[in-house]
């Protein structure tokens, strides 16, 4: 087909087909994600005054579990 060996045709059409199937399955399985859209109002999402910025005056209560 298309003047190409069968293996080449299988690879260049088969693998993209797998990605299409993956996308369709992902979209189907994630259909309930819209439940998260309730949060819509950005001002309520990003902290003080909707800036989303960390307030540098606030000090941490929790020590890290790492190497610092």
């Amino acid at each position: 087909m298309f003047g190409l060996p069968a293996v080449t045709v299988a690879v260049i059409f088969g693998i993209p087909a797998i990605w299409v199937i993956y996308t369709v399955v992902f979209v189907f399985l994630s259909r309930h994600w819209s439940a998260e859209d309730i949060e819509g109002d950005d001002s309520s999402l990003s902290g003080p005054e909707g800036t989303g910025l960390v307030d540098p005056s606030i000090q941490p209560r929790t020590e890290n579990g790492g190497l610092a």
């Binding site: 960390v54 307030d55 000090q59």
Partner: peptide, 20 residues
């Protein structure tokens, strides 16, 4: 899957707000 509770948001939870 759902909205982030208010107490988890940056600026409203000290431990989460000041990560450093």
């Amino acid at each position: 899957i759902g909205p982030i509770p208010a107490h988890m948001l940056t600026g409203q939870n000290d431990a989460l707000a000041a990560q450093v």
